[in-house]
């Protein structure tokens, strides 16, 4: 059996979204905390984590989501080739401008590299994945949001589901990391994940409607950026970022 051979029928986009949201998918995400470990080390009280999760879901989470949505739009419009590469460059620059912390950009590119392994393995022949893979260098990769855009284009995910997937994945990553960092009933942060997703709902339509890099939300979280920079310099980390 060749695991990379194309299946006879296509999975539903919702099934693909579930696969991507499942922490058991081996893409390297388990070593990341969605900025939670840097936040706790930086002094965020554990009691504030639910509010912090809502904050992410309505700020930096939307930057990631908008980047993925626009990358997918770029990759599904017009003929493939050089035009797409130039357009993807613009998307990446827009994302980088909205992600001032180098530590966070590096972490996102590392996640993108792991995600790209998944994408090439599962949707390798698709032109959208090939176009993003062509932008990867030996030791770097487009950020995860751009790779997610390629997967969305390849698998036919709706833009609203790309937004919800991004917000959910971020919240669940933080919730899962929290259990390694603070003593807690594991069911408690599950509620917080849903609360974060609910808070993002008001923004889903507008972010899903983004078509150009300029449309990507620029809602930042300066404390998170600062905490990420400090965390990258410590040598007592459970998580990469």
């Amino acid at each position: 059996m060749n695991p990379t051979s194309a299946p006879p029928a296509r999975p539903a986009p919702a099934s693909v979204a579930m696969l991507l949201a499942d922490a058991r998918l081996p893409g390297g995400g388990h070593a990341h905390s969605a900025s939670l470990e840097p936040a706790l080390l930086g002094g965020l009280p554990a009691a504030d984590v639910p509010a912090w999760m809502v904050g992410r879901a309505t700020t930096v989470g939307l930057v990631e989501a908008g980047t993925a949505v626009v990358a997918a739009r770029v990759l599904t419009s017009g003929p493939h080739g050089l035009d797409h590469d130039a357009a993807l460059s613009t998307v990446e620059r827009a994302w980088a401008a909205r992600t001032p912390s180098r530590a966070l950009r590096d972490a996102s590119r590392l996640l993108g590299r792991g995600y790209l392994r998944v994408a090439r393995s599962l949707w390798g022949p698709h032109p959208a994945v090939a176009a993003v893979a062509a932008r990867a260098t030996r030791s770097s990769s487009p950020p995860r949001a751009v790779v997610l855009g390629a997967v969305a284009a390849a698998a036919g995910l709706d833009a609203v589901d790309v937004v919800r997937l991004t917000v959910y994945d971020d919240a669940q990553t933080a919730a899962s990391a929290l259990l390694k960092l603070e003593p807690l009933d594991p069911l408690v942060p599950a509620r917080w994940v849903l609360d974060a997703c609910a808070a993002a709902e008001a923004h889903v339509g507008r972010v899903a409607a983004c078509t150009t890099p300029d449309d990507i939300p620029s809602s930042g979280a300066p404390l998170t950026e600062g905490w990420a920079e400090a965390h990258a310099l410590t040598n007592q980390r459970l998580f990469r970022a």
């Binding site: 390297g28 388990h30 590299r113 792991g114 392994r117």
Partner: peptide, 9 residues
């Protein structure tokens, strides 16, 4: 074992 991505990279 289950997700070797970081080590592989």
């Amino acid at each position: 074992r289950d997700d070797v991505t970081a080590n592989l990279l």
